[in-house]
Simulated assay, not measured.
Amino acid sequence: MMDADTMVLPRLGDAAVEDPWGEDRPRRATTRAATGERRRRIAAWLLPAALMAALGAARITASGLNAAESATRRAVTSPWQGIAAALTGDDVALGPYRLLLRGWVELFGAADLALRVPSLLAMVGTAALVGALATRIATPTAGLLAGLIFAVLPTSIRYAQQAQPYALAVFAAVLATWLLAPALDRPRRRRLVPYAGVVLLLGLCQPVALLLLTAHGWVVLAFRRRDTVRWLAAVLLGLLPVAALLAVGVRDGGRLASGAWPGAAVLAATPGELFGVAVLGGVLAGLGLFSLPLRYAAAICTAWALVPALGLLALAQAAPVWSAVNLLFTVPAWAVLGGVALARARAAGVLAVLALVALLAAAAQLPA
């Protein structure tokens, strides 16, 4: 069967119907207009990155290290034998991250701020990539809105201020998705090798976040079936080192993910834990309904938002692995879908929704 960009939704007549907002239409621009377009594209990633940096840096050392961060400090400042033990204990999923952080600590020390800066930098980079990805999918306006939404989410700020691997995993998930489309459109080695490298980084930071590959695989099968073998080769190139590193720990009883059984109460609490407040999850889900996969690029983010959650739910039937933190890498997808939807609205509606998101996010940051 030939690949096509309309395998998810049926063809409705002509290209104008498939692209009702005109986001795929070529634009003729004068030199002045082209300059303005470049500035908007730069602003779409620069402003979210700056906002994320400001929000993440504010009060980053106001609280001391929590129990998990303290364990990280002990691991990265212990003799090398202690790092090796982490790969064979209950914290096998954290072992690779602690290996990565060990090199950082050798350069910058193990103070609270030094331990948390890698997470802050990862979230700043993520906000920039969210803006750039939404710009590629739709318009610079969509990119700016998506990046701003991601930057103000309470969970983005929270994990930017923790010496834990989750911020790096979120960054790797966005970067992998950013690299997916060009790797499939022009499947040359120089495009597939970076994708494989980011898959490796994702697995090192948070093995359960490799569920992202289920979404990528669905996109490949639905839209680029002829490139399945190339994509699988790149995935295997990234997965094999991760599998080799974690195999010993899993064999000795270590866990790749922890969480709970997905009962009704646990599932009901997930939106609030994932977005910082349950209403924010409802707002982003509502916006996502207006960003259905009418086009190939948007379908990538739709799959990214939904398919890994279904995969985790399936895994949770066999082991207690359901938790919001294990789905944190899907939050940027919801921000992208929200930005794309808002970019199609009138200015008054955009301002109202942004104000609502900002108020809800600010309320979630207030002390209880």
Rank of each mutant, 00 (worst) to 15 (best):
A355R: 06
R226F: 09
A110K: 08
D185Q: 12
G249V: 00
V17Q: 12
T30E: 08
R190L: 11
M1V: 15
W21T: 01
L113W: 04
W178A: 14
V283W: 09
V229F: 12
G263Y: 07
N326E: 10
V325C: 08
L175W: 11
V76G: 01
Y97M: 11
L51W: 09
L313C: 08
G147C: 07
R59F: 10
D90A: 15
S63V: 13
G249L: 02
W104H: 13
R191D: 07
E23R: 00
V199N: 03
L184C: 05
A299Y: 07
L55N: 04
L144Q: 00
L310F: 13
A348M: 09
L267D: 09
A303I: 08
A243W: 11
G286A: 10
R136Q: 11
R189E: 15
A278G: 10
V76F: 03
G238Q: 06
R188W: 07
L274K: 07
M1D: 11
A343C: 03
G217K: 03
V266I: 13
A146W: 03
A160C: 07
A44Y: 03
R186G: 04
V229D: 05
T77P: 01
S70C: 10
A33K: 10
A314C: 12
L313A: 13
R190E: 14
T31L: 15
A278N: 08
E18C: 08
G286I: 10
A347G: 09
A84V: 12
T126K: 07
R11M: 15
P367W: 11
L280I: 13
A54Q: 07
A257Q: 00
L107G: 08
D227Y: 06
I300C: 11
V124C: 01
S70M: 14
L287F: 08
A347T: 15
G349N: 12
A34N: 09
A110I: 04
R226L: 14
V174G: 03
R344E: 00
G338L: 06
G64H: 05
A305L: 10
L342P: 05
L366H: 09
F223K: 03
A341M: 06
A362M: 12
V208Y: 01
V92T: 15
A278Q: 07
A364R: 06
L246N: 08
A54W: 14
P332I: 02
G95A: 15
L133A: 14
A362L: 15
Q365L: 15
R224K: 12
L213W: 01
F275G: 01
V277N: 06
L179N: 00
A243M: 12
A54Y: 08
A44P: 01
M1S: 12
G253C: 06
L212G: 02
